[in-house]
Design a protein around this nucleic acid. Structure first.
Lengths: 193, 193
DNA sequence: ACATTTATGTATCGATCAGTACAAAATACA
DNA sequence: TGTATTTTGTACTGATCGATACATAAATGT
């Protein structure tokens, strides 16, 4: 390809931007924050992300989405996907304090963007609904194999797990302590059966 | 008292500011948003709220706290506080769409402020912990009167309700529909017993 | 009437916001 | 060795940010 070669790896830029957005959200993260963290100049930045701040934020969100999709594929290959999901929830308790404090970037975005940016809000909601569907599919599979006796519809149980995930997003900030979170997670998972 | 009389009622200012902060959060609400919504000039504004934007935000949060404290007093007078709490959750489903979208200003603040403003973050967390304590007290009372058979500790059940509240804060935005929310709320309340 | 006090409206501050203009640099291709 | 193409760094833009300066208005107290 013709032209000066890129000094900055695109995915690296998005990675670093994601780190900032994850902590402070979209509005409170300034462009100069992004430029300072990545080391890129504004010329390169707007050459790479023609849509500016909003485009790199969307890229950060979508990158998070692919991380979720990887997990989803792992579930689809699994015999007992619900167990993997439960283990995922259990692993949350063991996170570092900083990870508790920043929570889930997608859930954060839904809360932040409601009256701020319709498109980004819709984007984040779409992802959470995909997560919900993943929960539902795992629960249905477990029901089919006879490993789950809970009589509630899978749809309701899926929304229950999603609501738990979003609630945990705040609880973790209030109690970034392994013991409390582990106990609470275990209790909430037991509800499913 | 000496001096020119105030044209603006302080609590009215806080009320209107609360409305803006509730929708867009702290950072995305600008001072000129606040001035436009209240009709006040910046001179008067900074004369009234010496701490500027942060002070009026804190006032908005604290005003919400007193609303919660009123409910708490009602609970303390009640014979079956847990039933009142359950009815409160049930009433959420019937909210208007706009109320679903803006959620709970305190829970929103916890999510927004984590790496943005330590003090406001701590303020909001303190309030949520008070709400949690209110849940715990109501559950203990219900246990004492023999009206609650669930063997889990009241502390755990209280955190469960709090987590549900915070999860609902996102679920409402994803599904601002009475039917879905009512079904989900009923399911989650049934867990308590 | 006049001094004092407080609230108000307006003009304005420096800082920062997101974004642009543009020339220099670094490559590929002719 | 040029010419086209793309990236990069820097200077800069107008707009908006939160906040202040200050004169004027409107009350009270003497």
């Amino acid at each position: 390809m013709k032209g000066r070669p890129t000094l900055f790896e695109n995915s690296e830029l998005v990675n670093k931007a994601q780190g900032l957005f994850w902590e402070k959200g979209y509005t409170a993260t300034s462009l100069s924050d992004l430029l300072a963290a990545t080391g890129i100049g504004s010329g390169s930045f707007y050459n790479t992300f023609k849509g500016g701040k909003k485009e790199i934020f969307r890229a950060a969100i979508l990158q998070r989405r692919t991380a979720f999709e990887d997990f989803k594929k792992e579930l689809e290959r699994s015999e007992s996907p619900l167990e993997l999901i439960k283990d995922f929830f259990r692993s949350i308790a063991k996170s570092e304090r900083a990870d508790h404090l920043r929570g889930c970037i997608i859930a954060n975005t839904v809360v932040e963007m409601t009256y701020v940016d319709e498109e980004l809000e819709a984007e984040a909601i779409r992802i959470l609904k995909d997560v919900e569907q993943m929960f539902v599919a795992a629960i249905e599979k477990e029901k089919d194999s006879g490993g789950l006796l809970n009589p509630m519809p899978a749809k309701v149980l899926g929304k229950y797990l999603l609501t738990f995930w979003c609630g945990l997003n705040t609880l973790r900030r209030m109690y970034p302590e392994q013991k409390i979170l582990a106990e609470q997670i275990e209790m909430q998972l037991a509800v499913i059966g």
